[in-house]
Design a binder for these strands. Sequence first.
DNA 1: GCTGGCACTCTCATCTATCGAGTGCTAATT
DNA 2: AATTAGCACTCGATAGATGAGAGTGCCAGC
Lengths: 358, 358
Amino acid sequence: MEISERKKKILAAVVDEYIANAEPVGSKLIAEKAGLHVSSATIRNELAELTALGYLEQPHTSAGRVPTAQGYRLYVNELMERHKLSMEETAEINRSLNVKVQQLDKLMQDVGRIAADMTNYPALAMAAQAPETIRRFDIIYVDANTFIIVALLGSSKVKNKLVHLPFSVDQSTIQKLSTVFNASFTGVTEEQITPVLISSTERAVGDTMGLVAAIAGFALEILSESRGAQGVLAGGAKLLQLPEFRDPDKAHHLMDYLSDTAHLADLSAVGSFGSDVKVLIGPENVAEELRDSSVVLAKYDAGDGMQGVIGVVGPTRMDYSTVAAKLSYIADSLSKALAGGKTDALPGFGKLMIKDQN
Amino acid sequence: MEISERKKKILAAVVDEYIANAEPVGSKLIAEKAGLHVSSATIRNELAELTALGYLEQPHTSAGRVPTAQGYRLYVNELMERHKLSMEETAEINRSLNVKVQQLDKLMQDVGRIAADMTNYPALAMAAQAPETIRRFDIIYVDANTFIIVALLGSSKVKNKLVHLPFSVDQSTIQKLSTVFNASFTGVTEEQITPVLISSTERAVGDTMGLVAAIAGFALEILSESRGAQGVLAGGAKLLQLPEFRDPDKAHHLMDYLSDTAHLADLSAVGSFGSDVKVLIGPENVAEELRDSSVVLAKYDAGDGMQGVIGVVGPTRMDYSTVAAKLSYIADSLSKALAGGKTDALPGFGKLMIKDQN
DNA sequence: GCTGGCACTCTCATCTATCGAGTGCTAATT
DNA sequence: AATTAGCACTCGATAGATGAGAGTGCCAGC
């Protein structure tokens, strides 16, 4: 059943009002605020119908109306005005985001913080890495019992490890190891590092007291560790400002849930989302703990098979329009920045700049 | 003025009781629980004197007594029994701590989490790096416009950077750069990288389109970035379980403060502490926000000039004895682990194990 | 110096009365 | 048929009022 234009207007007004004040909204207020020139009695009739249709509900008989999840859903899908970021807002995001390229996890921490600060809700930032390959493999001789392993990965990240040995090796051995590894470990994925590969490499080098196996182990370690997703939560304290979390138990419940990285990963793994921003309202969330909260997620692309998600968690009464706009903008900027400046810029050869989108 | 033995016993009883239940404690309870065989009336007289001396206070006439900061201080300094960790407790810590050597920031996140979980208070973990030097400097040629810079630092950490160039260089140039840098940038500190050093290096290599300056810039960047302290907060949600933070505003206030890394750094920079554990009670904290909370800090030593602090934040009514014991144990274990396994172990050449201390 | 006894104080929980926002319904109006 | 004014009704929130209970301070007696 299609609901009338006027009902939609009324619903939108209720949602807007409730988002702003967190208090059940009554017919009189709507009559004044929404641009419809009808009396509160008329509004009451409409409200009654919207309630019957499941878009609104009453906390108790003589209180105003509050949107249901279904109501929010309709609002998000059709009713809400797409918030246009003001110059100040974009400027502020740009200013914060204009960070130099840095360690991935550090970056995520920053991005999470920015999202939290901009939206005033707790925010999460995740990054997931597509399976890696080794693009290049070098071994640097330091001294008789020390060398450094350096691996350049498919995603242009570089991993390294310093190794002390309980015995000595001479420089030529390291040299040889380096050459052989560079030849045989180029382009390999995690699965391709098999006992077979290892023993063939071993034969190529000649015996080296198990060094080959050990170094191969390191390669395996890098590849497997870069597979995992990582994530952070920022601005958790912001929950406590919201009237719906004045109850410390509720707040604690949710916070506890959110402070587990694994849960964050679940959250942002919500299938593939087509559009740029995804909104999960109340009961649409799978996790019990989020049943009366909403989540807004935006995807970003970091190039080289790196996928990331930033998101915000708040009460169902969330300012979807603004939040969505901001997240989407941050995600976009991030994608551009990471794609463009992926390779760490060497100072003097151009710094990462986030282009102004206006 | 020296207070009597009996008063001390009574004070200790009050503190213990208050720590356990967060409720003002009355004379009757003390008369029963503390091993003194006197009536509640006697206790009342003593309590009155302790109150006059400033060790206790009453929320209002006719409530029980609550320790003041001064009372806690005496308790911590003289009265409290040093908590002995049980087998289960040490076992649990060991189990959690038995993590493989990993990225420093990842490690701190883990340690913070462990401290928070073990004590049930929000915990912080910090690490501060003493000024670094460059021990070795290599440049690896990848292809005509790509190379990797690898620097081995004084603390045995290795930093690297992948560089794409907008123009080509041939392998021999890189080779030469590597040799020259390895010679002239060995052992340098941040301050020693001066324009003079850079231009002398430039002369040694011959002109290379500004590459020398750029690479030197990278060196500078590494050294300066490793100087900063970093820290994390874990288990912030645990605050909300405590009766003193049932007021969401209070909780919010403190949490907000704690979620700023800069504040954490301040906190753990509390001068040099001689003993292994330092306790800051209520108003002894400099930060306004911590005036009615307490902080327990333990220092650990990560070898190679790395200093770290782990700490716990809670109400003044904190279980100092247990918390101090646990933190101290964690810090100790951490020191041992990091000193021993500092160099990343290569799989197969011995893994980091935290020795059992029992 | 210790103790039992007692009057006093102050908080907290419970209860009641009242207020007011907002509803639903009906009857009148357009 | 839709809109509106009017009105009785509901129900949460707020403010006092009341009583119970915990704990104190002090005094007189041992």
